[in-house]
Design a protein around this nucleic acid. Structure first.
Lengths: 234, 234
DNA sequence: ACTAGAAGTGTACATAGTACATTTAAAATA
DNA sequence: TATTTTAAATGTACTATGTACACTTCTAGT
């Protein structure tokens, strides 16, 4: 029974993680990249990846890779696409399933990051990446743009408390264009998914900007009743 | 150089095709299913599938499976999702990438279909499917609904010449709800992507309904200039 | 000529999207 | 303590899109 498929070939199977972070201060989207520590392409920039083991599912493999690198669990992650060109990896034939993850840069301990040879690199100034990783990143970016329009996943990139200015800057960094302040606020506030806090952020202005929190419970409730998040402004 | 990854396990890799067709007469979406001809689950209903060979890419494998079954090439097909649960196939560990394809039922020669043990089954009355194929079908359906709203892929399911009534019936079959006739026509015609023919379809009414053709060249031109197809009516 | 059945058509109203400039708050400085 | 500076906060008029809704036209068959 275990050899019924034995006339078919087997293949190496990998997962690669496109890990996005958002730098509030620099108002820039970043990618967590590693310097590859093994051949082929040792020393070159690469996505975080790993081979799928016998006893783990694809999703488990992706979680393992992400968790090993960041020390974090329960991060936002979803499967993106599977890359199966015959010669995509010069070392051997490897099929790779790409996952994309969103994490708050503040969540990742710089010490752990450094120890794992990982670096935050600006989306607007990426180094050359090995194999087809650049293609994966492009697809992930497209997916991110499409996703934040229609699902409240942008909040995964921000701290629990954030200001409306920060939220808008995040959307501008993802959309790569300016959005109108009043229209943006009108739209997001009309959804009534943000809870205003009694506290202000005072780093970036004298007046200070009110902190808000995303109310995920309220979102789930609304979504159950057919509500659709939409933040495609201007 | 060929054994650098040799400490990692290898896996069987399959592709499965979710093949949609549309029955104009019955106004129903259909799936092309096969009776499985090998163990395990011999004789049960299954998606068309096959193992990925050494020298072929994932996409090539999916095309091969689709082409072998239908005798057709250049069909609409895209990768959907990769299923990697450890025990999804009781025969052995097999990771499977699902593809979804759209074909006009009229395109498929019934003789070829019969010879390959394939059958058109209504979406609304599917038999039990092996393994996780039902999950794949559900995801493909979701994807189809989302896709036809925003890309002109519905035309892949119709003959070259079709009437507005047929097009609307198709959308109703996919959306699983009625749409308003006047609004539907207003919207699709305002895009100016349909070329009215000098000929009428006369099977279903005394008056006859004008045939139209989808002008794909015009669509490509418009899309290049930032036009977005949208047919989410009512 | 009349009937029956599906194809084809337009308008008024409601909702959502967009463009746009001034006021407010508070720390820093004169 | 009055003034300056800087970013946060706010509302309205207009445009475009979406939606609800019912009658007329065409033609084969009787």
């Amino acid at each position: 029974m275990t050899h019924i498929y034995s006339k078919y070939p087997k293949h190496y199977l990998a997962v690669d993680c496109i890990i996005f972070g958002y730098d509030i201060a620099e108002k820039e989207l970043k990618l967590l990249l590693i310097k590859r520590s093994f051949e082929p392409a040792l020393g070159q920039w690469s996505l975080a990846g790993g081979f799928v083991q016998e006893n783990e599912s694809l999703d488990d493999a992706a979680c393992r890779v992400l968790c090993t690198l960041t020390g974090l669990s329960d991060l936002y992650m979803e499967q993106l696409y599977t890359y199966g060109e015959v010669n995509r990896d010069p070392g051997a034939r490897v099929i790779s399933t790409a996952y994309f993850a969103l994490i708050g840069i503040h969540e990742l301990d710089p010490e752990i990051r450094r120890r794992n040879g990982a670096h935050w690199r600006s989306i607007s100034n990426l180094p050359d990446l090995i194999f087809d990783h650049r293609v994966m990143v492009e697809k992930a970016l497209q997916e991110l743009v499409a996703k934040v329009k229609v699902y409240p996943v942008g909040f995964e990139l921000l701290p629990e408390k954030f200001t409306l200015v920060q939220l808008q800057n995040l959307y501008e960094a993802i959309y790569l264009r300016q959005v109108d302040k009043r229209n943006f606020r009108k739209k997001i506030l009309s959804m009534e998914l943000l809870d205003k806090q009694d506290e202000k952020e005072r780093e970036t202005s004298k007046k200070g900007a009110w902190y808000y929190r995303f109310n995920i419970e309220k979102y789930k409730e609304l979504a159950r009743n057919g509500f659709f998040f939409n933040l495609s402004v201007n």
